[in-house]
């Protein structure tokens, strides 16, 4: 009973938040709504007994990814309204419906087959985080290490791409000096 109430409440909240993210004209509203939606998503993970995934969702998505977006948005002009030319064709809703149908088929297809057995069965005796650690560091060790290397590459790539011309301290310069520098750059 409580599970049903929680499910419907968080479904409603998540859908509303993501809908705001997709439709709003202010990028700051979109960022905030997306962060809220991420936290509501983690509620599903807790309902489903995947405690570790819920915590990772909050830390990585609402913490790291959203902070990264917030830092990125400092570079862009986020205070003015987004001027987006709306797509004129009727194609968008049709394509959206078709894609959604395709997703339903993709999701339903393995569920229809009933003869699915668990490779790594969930043991209720040990906690979720402990069990995840045991599976992750035995069966999924190589993907785990690859993901670590990929994150390192992404971090170095992000620093190299965005970090150019950041060795100058603009806050300690006067307005004239900054104008001079900007003129020299552009």
């Amino acid at each position: 009973m409580f599970e049903a109430i929680a499910f419907y409440l968080f479904s409603f909240l998540t859908i509303v938040m993501f809908w705001i993210t997709v439709t709003t004209k202010h990028s700051l509203y979109a960022l905030t709504a997306l962060a809220a939606g991420m936290i509501f998503i983690s509620a599903f993970f807790f309902i489903l007994g995947a405690d570790f995934m819920g915590v990772v969702q909050i830390i990585v998505y609402s913490g790291a990814v959203m902070a990264l977006y917030a830092f990125g948005m400092m570079f862009f002009d986020t205070t003015r309204e987004l001027k987006e030319k709306p797509t004129k064709t009727r194609l968008v809703p049709i394509l959206g419906a078709l894609a959604a149908l395709l997703v339903v088929l993709m999701v339903i297809a393995p569920v229809v087959g009933e003869n699915i057995t668990a490779h790594y069965p969930i043991d209720v005796a040990i906690g979720n985080s402990q069990a995840i650690g045991m599976v992750l560091f035995t069966k999924y060790l190589v993907p785990f290490e690859l993901a670590a290397v990929m994150l390192l590459v992404a971090m170095i790539g992000g620093i190299v791409l965005a970090g150019k011309m950041m060795d100058e301290d603009y806050s300690s310069l006067s307005e004239e000096q900054i104008d001079e520098k900007e003129g020299a750059v552009s």
């Binding site: 995947a50 995934m53 990772v56 969702q57 990585v60 998505y61 790291a64 990814v65 990264l68 977006y69 830092f71 990125g72 995840i132 992750l136 993907p143 993901a147 990929m150 994150l151 590459v153 992404a154 971090m155 790539g157 992000g158 620093i159 190299v160 791409l161 965005a162």
Partner: peptide, 18 residues
Amino acid sequence: AFFIIAIAASEVAIGLGL
């Protein structure tokens, strides 16, 4: 799902840099 989160994090780092 765990690996998808890792991929999403690296995608954001590279994408925002670009």
